[in-house]
């Protein structure tokens, strides 16, 4: 892998305006590199893509896998501490016309992702907010402006329609059935176990996924 080499190159050119053009070429689209505010302890893989015009901020401990895409073309993105964003996940509004042909949808000014949120591969996150400790599983689509509560589990391939509010402790599973996660609500130990597991995963990922923060600063 040429990561070391490219990292070195990035460091040397980081912060300059010439960086922008080369990034655009690299990601093979003509969207500009987004302005960012990254915590030095965040892990952003070399092949992750951060584009757009609004600020993308990533807090400490968050791991952004290679080929994850964060798009701030229409609204800023704020990712809280300890999140995991997997490959193929897309955070941010990418194509407005698809979701909102009439344009009457209220777009969030900022996409805010809380602490310890796990966003799995293939998800499309256009939600305005995701509460802490929520799991967004594989291939989930969160519609524009939806609000997901804390400690939710959105199971694989579920769809949350635009503008929807999902209360705390909700589980969406199967063919978009919903239920309340009573065990998690009533037994705090499970939450402890879960967040411990999440912490351990972050720890392992920090060792496995090489970071290239400099590329995006």
């Amino acid at each position: 892998m040429d990561q070391q080499a490219s990292q070195a190159k990035r460091v040397s050119t980081s912060g300059t305006s010439s960086n922008r053009a080369s990034t655009a070429k690299r990601s093979s689209t003509n969207v500009p590199k987004a302005p960012t505010s990254l915590d030095p302890n965040a892990i952003i893989a070399n092949h992750a893509v951060l584009t757009g015009i609004h600020t993308i901020s990533v807090a400490a401990g968050t791991v952004i896998h290679p080929h994850a895409r964060i798009i701030s073309t229409y609204s800023a993105v704020d990712i809280g501490p300890g999140c995991i964003v997997s490959e193929k996940a897309v955070i941010g509004l990418s194509d407005l016309s698809q979701d909102d042909p009439e344009g009457d949808l209220e777009l969030p000014e900022i996409i805010k992702i809380g602490q310890n949120v796990n966003i799995e591969s293939g998800t499309i996150v256009e939600a305005a907010e995701i509460g802490e400790n929520t799991l967004i599983d594989v291939d989930v689509k969160l519609g524009a402006g939806s609000v997901i509560g804390k400690n939710c589990t959105i199971s694989a391939c579920s769809v949350v329609p635009p503008g929807e509010t999902v209360p705390d402790y909700t589980v969406i599973y199967g063919n978009n059935q919903r239920r309340l996660n009573k065990s998690l609500q009533s037994t705090p130990v499970i939450l402890d176990i879960k967040s411990k597991g999440h912490e351990k995963q972050l720890n392992v990922l920090q060792r496995l996924v090489p970071s290239n923060l400099a590329k995006w600063q």
Binding site: S155, Y173, G174, Q177, R179, N181, K182, S183, L184, I190
Partner: peptide, 9 residues
Amino acid sequence: PFCQWSSLE
């Protein structure tokens, strides 16, 4: 693991 039901409920 799918719908998060548990026997604690």
